[in-house]
Design a protein around this nucleic acid. Structure first.
Length: 557
RNA sequence: GCGCCAGUAGCUCAGCUGGAUAGAGCGUCGGACUUCUAAUCCGUUGGUCGCAGGUUCGAGUCCUGCCUGGCGCGCCA
């Protein structure tokens, strides 16, 4: 919480003589001042007295003359506060970093699959996950990123068996070759039971560590990870190979998971599979719904891997908070995994587990995103198109040296569009709207930042402090600046990056109004110096905010 | 059948966890550029917050029941 808001809150708290939350909120309209409190309405209800009388007593007891203009009572009993402009100026100048909070959070995101190109489906997890990590880090968490790559299971047995049968050398296959190999092996597996048996044996060889099988598998993993890294670099994601802890990493833990569940009496044999039945979960037929830990063929399903991952993250990584950035279709799965982990005591009450779910990216017309022939659209293709659009617009503007800027604007537009509305909603991937330079878009924010950069480079060295805030538009801008940390804290709690987007958009809009109405370089004396510093503070917040979203802020565009 | 999520202006979306006359952008129409970058700003137009009850000083927000759409519900992840 910003110093200003917390001080005002505690003053209200002291004046009320009650334990009620002062409910200090931003004023809904400029004519209501800067902040409002609804405390009098609450108190009046509790005391059975007229709200305006309670408000009057509250205002009389309230000591804020060192911070605010005289408080006003309005409407049914709202208390409106207007911060003194010198206090506001001081608050703008007083930005401080968050202290480390001594808590560790594990964020599981991106999760592409080995031997498959990354597609739109991976965009959201990667973009939201990066942003969530940045925000958590900013407010003082120690963040551990975990890329739970899909690199284990029957499909790799299939693929290796197919590879051997065709006499191919794994070394010659790139990612696209692997994807084709997968498709061939899938068809073969489905149509030839003898091959299917061989493939299953190959899975056993893989899981028990047969050297030749492992070597082929390792090659597939290496090729895939190298490709993912290129996409991450393109996206500006912070993910590296060090963050990859794929499903295979838990192979040795899976029997232990089963043993511990058995020991706790949580496992039941059902149709040959080892299942955990949790109270309250019923399936389509009204029958109890299991978590299948070990399949009837003796293999382990993804539930076992997810359980092992939780166990590892608590016991070895010492996580106080675990976050899963995974699409909303897996909501039930995670609910059950979390419940079972609690029952098995892998997830103690001191550790929270959250599923940060998100909606689907849809193609044109709100239909599933597919190419004309029904294939999946590669993520890199979409990014190329976005950069191309950005480049065209920059060209029309006569911008020189466009290559890097077009990257920043195109990729930034895609990422911003992904982050700017509530994660739970589906959205249509519409490049025209994303790259639009007006409205709540990435380019609009980047433009505000670039404008300020230009202005500041013409202004000379900023002298440091904001000292004057005479114009209402300056005050509006300053007030917004003091709200940055509160907004980021909210995002760290709710894990909803769109709140930060909304904030930054309002800030950029307020800046544009200021820019229209308040000359900076053409003004003189203290006004000029103060406005330059207000611009510098705004630029810093825009830069920090875009940084938290994982979006580049070019100096010119 | 059960569960999760969503339904707010013609379109795309906010709405700060129950507060004042529900806000932006796009679109429409009209205005402001020898610019501190007009990729901007100002004005205009636009809503039965899916429907019906309930809770209370006060509901887009909370509770119940419906309607519509998306998704999920035993060995894929």
């Amino acid at each position: 919480m910003s110093a200003l808001v917390s001080v005002l809150s505690s003053r209200l708290f002291d004046a009320s003589g009650s334990t009620l939350d002062p409910e200090l909120r931003s004023a809904t309209k400029p004519e209501f001042g800067h902040y409002q409190s609804n405390l009098a309405l609450r108190l009046a209800n509790q005391l059975g007295q007229p709200p305006r009388e309670v408000a009057a007593r509250l205002v009389a007891a309230l000591k804020v003359d060192d911070l605010c203009e005289p408080p006003a009572i309005a409407g049914p009993g709202f208390i409106n506060l207007t911060v003194r402009s010198d206090v506001l100026a001081a608050a703008v100048n007083a930005r401080t970093a968050f202290a480390p909070r001594g808590e560790r959070v594990v964020v599981d995101y991106s999760q592409p699959n080995v031997a498959k190109q990354m597609h739109v489906g991976h965009l959201r997890s990667t973009v939201i996950g990066d942003s969530v990590c940045n925000v958590l880090q900013y407010v003082g968490y120690e963040v551990i990123r975990q890329n739970h790559v899909g690199d284990w299971g029957t499909q790799y047995g299939m693929m290796i068996e197919q590879l051997l049968e065709e006499g191919l050398d794994a070394e010659t296959l790139d990612l696209q070759g692997l994807q084709k190999l997968y498709e061939r092996s899938r068809r073969h597996f489905d149509s030839d039971s003898a091959f299917a048996d061989l493939a299953r044996l190959r899975v056993v060889a893989l899981q028990t560590g047969d050297p030749a099988t492992r070597a082929n598998w390792q090659h597939m993993v290496d090729v895939s990870l190298a490709d993912f890294e290129q996409v991450y670099a393109r996206l500006g994601s912070a993910l590296t190979r060090d963050d990859v802890v794929g499903e295979s990493a838990y192979n040795d833990d899976l029997p232990v998971i089963v043993a511990e569940l058995e020991q706790d009496g949580l496992l039941t044999e059902s149709d040959g599979a080892s299942c955990a039945f949790l109270p309250g979960y019923v399936g389509r037929d009204g029958l109890p719904l299991p978590v299948i830990v070990r399949k009837s063929d003796g293999g382990f399903g993804y539930s076992a891997t997810d359980l092992a991952a939780i166990r590892h993250r608590v016991q070895d990584l010492d996580a106080q908070r675990i976050v899963y950035v995974v699409d909303h279709r897996q909501a039930l799965h995670f609910e059950m995994i979390f419940a079972l982990s609690r029952a098995a005591s892998w997830l103690p009450s001191t550790t929270t587990a959250e599923h940060v779910s998100f909606g689907t990216v849809l193609g044109p017309g709100g239909k599933p995103f597919k190419t004309r022939d029904g294939g999946t659209v590669k993520l890199t293709t979409l990014l190329d198109e976005a950069v191309e659009r950005a480049d065209k617009i920059l060209e029309e503007r006569g911008v020189a040296d466009r290559t890097e800027i077009a990257q920043a604007v195109g990729i930034g537009a895609v990422k911003y569009s992904d982050l700017s509305s509530d994660r739970d909603n589906d959205y249509v991937f519409d490049l025209d709207r994303m790259v639009a330079m007006s409205g709540n878009t990435g380019p609009y924010l980047q433009y505000a930042h670039a404008r300020l950069t230009r202005l500041l480079s013409n202004a000379g060295e900023p002298s440091g402090a904001v000292t004057l805030l005479d114009h209402p538009v300056e005050q509006r801008l300053a007030l917004l600046l003091t709200g940055f940390d509160d907004t980021v804290v909210q995002v760290a709690e709710t894990l909803q990056p769109h709140r930060l987007c909304t904030y930054l958009y309002e800030l950029a809009a307020a800046l544009s109004v200021f820019y229209e109405q308040c000359p900076v370089l053409k003004s003189e004396g203290e006004t000029r110096a103060s406005r330059i510093n207000l611009c510098a503070a705004t630029r810093q917040v825009l830069q920090d905010g875009l940084g938290l979203l994982g979006i580049a802020a070019p100096d010119a565009m």
